[in-house]
Design a protein around this nucleic acid. Structure first.
Length: 182
DNA sequence: CGCGAATCATTGT
DNA sequence: ACAATGATTCGCG
């Protein structure tokens, strides 16, 4: 298991991955900011992790940096190690992965989409534990009333991520209906 | 509007 | 097993 810190402008994004054979699999993505230095958080969560100076994959560096900057980029879900997730969380994350760039979905909408229409709140808690923010675009999931809702990296960051994708948020912090995807 | 009850998967005890 | 805990939602006063 390895980790590296990717510099995106002024921000640092932590990346933990593993290699099964020749295939690189992302285990966890750490958002910039908040308390503690990035490396400390990572080593606490993954005691068996090894630091790498050089990036193991320039492609993944650019993928993450691009997404963080609001660019539209595609990647395959097989890049991620979803095997540690519960069934429910996996369903939520797979569905979230499908939300198009520049669009948003609601917690209740996702719940309906995966067949548990009344599980909006459970969808929220599943997303709160999303191991792959940025890659699995949980920042595109907002509340039914159009408010942004919460976000692991802070609601200010959620807003920035959406705006970088071209979503215009009105002065009262509400996302216009035109951006709703489902 | 604000408030509380409903809802549901997950986690800790 | 069971109670507690949320990135929520809806209906009511």
């Amino acid at each position: 298991m390895f980790y590296q810190v990717i510099k995106v402008g002024k921000d640092e994004i932590g990346l933990v991955w593993d290699e099964a054979g020749k295939k690189v699999r992302v285990e966890y993505v750490y958002l910039p900011g908040d308390k503690g230095k990035m490396a400390n958080r990572i080593v606490r969560d993954f005691p068996a992790v090894h630091k790498t100076q050089h990036s193991i994959s320039k492609d993944i560096d650019q993928l993450i940096a691009g997404l963080y900057n609001g660019q539209k980029k595609n990647f395959d879900l097989s890049l991620l190690n979803l095997s540690k997730l519960t069934d429910f969380s996996a369903k939520v994350l797979r569905q979230t992965y499908k939300i198009p760039h520049g669009k948003v979905a609601t917690y209740s909408g996702l719940a309906a989409k995966i067949g548990n229409p009344r599980a909006a709140r459970a969808v929220g808690t599943a997303l709160a534990d999303n191991p792959f923010p940025i890659l699995i675009p949980c920042h595109r999931v907002i509340r039914a009333d159009g408010q942004l809702g919460q976000f692991g990296g802070g609601s200010d960051m959620k807003k920035k991520l959406l705006e970088r994708e071209g979503i215009i948020i009105d002065p009262q912090g509400v996302v216009p209906l035109k951006h709703m995807s489902y």
